[in-house]
Amino acid sequence: MGFQEGTKKGDSKRLKQTLAFGVFKVMSFLVVAILVIILGFIIFNGISAISWEFLTEMPREGMTQGGIFPAIVGTLCLVLGSMLFAFPVGIMSGIYINEYAKDGWLKRFIKLMTNNLAGVPSIVFGLFGMALFVNKLGFGDSLLAGSLTLGLLALPVVIRTTEEALKAIDDSFRVGSLALGASKWQTTSKVILPIAFPNIITGLILSIGRVSGETAPILFTVAAYFLPKLPTSIFDQVMALPYHLYVISTSGTNIEASRTMAYGTAFVLIVIVLLVNLLANWLRKYFGKKVKMN
């Protein structure tokens, strides 16, 4: 009797396990299918707009003709500017939280505020950026104000991924380095940070993916409706692909031409994000190999 009951329980567990794995597999394929459908839709509708002129010319006729070159340059400048702010500040903050801050109410408060900051809607960041950078500090609608606002938006992601990357490193590395006479900073900068850096780049990838497609923050701080020229200063306004896509999709003029350009702009934006992510992944693998070799 006991053997039969054990066999039945074993069969029941295997059945539940098979069902659970089957559900997980279906959900995974569903996510991939949704992604493929979205990308296929954008590519199918946007590929006809892609040409050398579309990528390299200035916009004309209320952005229904010409190209999107200023918007491409503006988007790349905003992503680069935001990362120049968010990445070092986020890494240093993550290092402080995980390596230096003592367990207590202050550390818990900082982590709580970081988590809450990650959940703030992007339009709130835009209003804050307009109030602080555009008006209070006098930067005006500029590349500098937009980059700083997007940097604040990306900051929580970089902090959390840095913290998790450092937390995943075994304490034996820290103890061994300190036992050899290294200081706390030498241990962090020479031992811990190089090992964690490939995973920290994950934060860079996630933050780039977020800021490159944001419209609300740049709407209040930097984006121009129609500006057929390239920026020459950090205090210049720029066009950006997300805002450009929004404007031509809602302008209501020359609907067919606007729709074609909108799909083409969306296609270019996706390709830029993909290329930047591939570059970040390559950097992660490169630094990961260097850590293994050392």
Rank of each mutant, 00 (worst) to 15 (best):
I255G: 06
P198W: 06
A266Y: 01
S233K: 13
V238S: 03
P231S: 01
S233H: 13
T187R: 05
M261C: 07
V238P: 08
S207I: 14
L279H: 05
L279V: 13
F226N: 07
H244E: 01
Y246V: 15
Q237K: 15
V191T: 15
Y225L: 12
P242Y: 02
Y225K: 11
L245P: 07
R210K: 02
T202R: 12
S258K: 02
T215Y: 03
L193D: 04
I255L: 05
G252Y: 08
E256W: 04
T215C: 08
L274Q: 08
N199T: 14
T260I: 13
A240H: 09
A240D: 08
S258G: 08
I201Q: 12
R259L: 04
I192R: 06
V211L: 06
F197K: 09
V273R: 04
P231W: 00
A262H: 02
A266I: 10
V268C: 06
R259M: 07
G252T: 12
F267C: 15
L278K: 12
I208E: 00
K190D: 10
P228Q: 00
T253N: 04
A224V: 11
L278A: 15
L278S: 12
I205S: 04
V247D: 02
K229W: 01
L274D: 08
I201K: 10
V211I: 13
V211D: 06
I208Q: 03
F235I: 13
H244I: 01
F197N: 09
Q237Y: 11
T253H: 02
L204W: 04
T215E: 06
I234N: 01
K229R: 13
V247I: 12
I234D: 00
I195K: 09
I201E: 09
S207N: 11
A223I: 11
S258E: 00
A216H: 08
G252S: 09
Y246G: 14
F197D: 13
M239R: 11
V276M: 14
T253D: 01
I248S: 05
I195Y: 02
R210D: 00
P242N: 07
L193E: 05
M261P: 04
T232K: 15
L269H: 07
T187Q: 06
Q186Y: 03
T253S: 03
S249K: 05
V247R: 01
H244P: 08
L204V: 03
E214V: 07
L206H: 14
K190I: 03
L206E: 02
T260L: 15
G203T: 12
P242L: 07
I208P: 04
R259Y: 05
R210W: 00
A257N: 11
T215H: 04
V247G: 01
T188N: 10
Y246M: 14
P231Y: 00
T188S: 13
T187I: 08
I208M: 09
F235E: 08
A224G: 11
V271I: 15
T221K: 00
T250G: 13
F235R: 14
A224S: 13
